[in-house]
Structures are given as C-alpha cells and as structure tokens.
Amino acid sequence: MADPSSAEHAAVPAFPQLHFEYWPTQIFYLLVALVVLYFILTRNALPKVQATLEERRDTISGDLDKAAEFNLAAEEAEEAYKAALQNARAEAQKIADKTKADVRAKLDVAIAEADKRIAEQTAESQKRLEALMQEAAAKAQEVAFSTASALSQRFSPTPITDAEIQTAVSRRLSSSFGG
C-alpha cells in the first residue's frame, strides 16, 4: 500500500488482507458457509457417526459380557468336573475297602473251616493210631503169651498156670510199650 492514489496499486493491492473493502463479501459468505456446513453436519452426518460409534461400543461391551459369561460357565464346569472326579475317587476307595473287607472275612471263614477240618483229621488220626497201638499191644501180648506158655510147658520143671504167665507177660510188656 505504498501509494493509494496510484491506479496500478489499487488493482493489485500489496496486502490484500488489510483491504477492508474486501471484508464484507468474505464475512457474508463465511457466515453462509458456516451455517450450511453446520446444518449438513448436525442434521445428517454427526448423528449417524454418533449412532455408529455407540452401536459399536454396545456391541463390543455386549460381546465382552458374553465372553465373561462363557468364561464363568467354563469355570463352573471345571469345578463340577473336579467335584465329580473327587466323588468318583472316594467311591472307588469305598468299593476297594469294602471288597478288601469281604475278601478278608471270607478268607477268615475259610481259614477257620480249614483249621477245624485239620483238627478233626488230626483227632481221627490220633484215635486210629491209638487203636492201632492198642491192637498191636494186644497182638504182642497174645504172641508173647503163646510163646511164653509154649516155652514154660517145654522147659519149666513145675507147671505154671496160664494166669501167672499172663501176669508176667503183661508186666513185661507194659514196661516196654509204656502202657
């Protein structure tokens, strides 16, 4: 703005920003532009953008909630699984204990039975042995008596009665058989 009177400088202003004759048109159209932009943005665009953002936020938080629920359910299932496992273990332990007790009881009965039978057989054997020994002792006595009576008939100067022989043989045999 060296020389305002010069026509050349008026046509090409040195500093257009400070030429106030250009201000009204800029101000007028600026206000028009701002009002138009404001109405386009607030009537059309911004509500949609806001709705989209809210929708997205809701969807994301909804999904997160659902994920948390699933997580909770999974944890519960794990708890239930652990509890069931514990129960099964306890049950198995109980069954094992019971079986062991049963087996022990049956075994005890069988052992008792066997012991009884062994005792019976032992007693019977004992009896038979005794009978055999008695028989043997009787037979020995018989043989000894007959031998002794034959010997006494042959070699004794005096006749010896059967009763005397019997007594002597019995005395002798009881000491040897322990009778």
Binding site: T25, L41, A45
Partner: peptide, 24 residues
C-alpha cells in the same frame, strides 16, 4: 474466496455424508 469456501463446504460435507452412510 467464495468459490473456495463453497469447495470447503462441499469437500467437508461429502466426506461426512459419504463417510457416515455405511455405518459398518
């Protein structure tokens, strides 16, 4: 200046109108 103000409004409105239509 008026022309470029109009272009500014046009460009900004286009961006926001087309950008907010999809709502994906």
């Amino acid at each position: 200046s008026t022309l470029w103000m109009a272009l500014v409004v046009l460009a900004a409105s286009s961006l926001f109108i087309f950008g907010s239509q999809g709502r994906a």
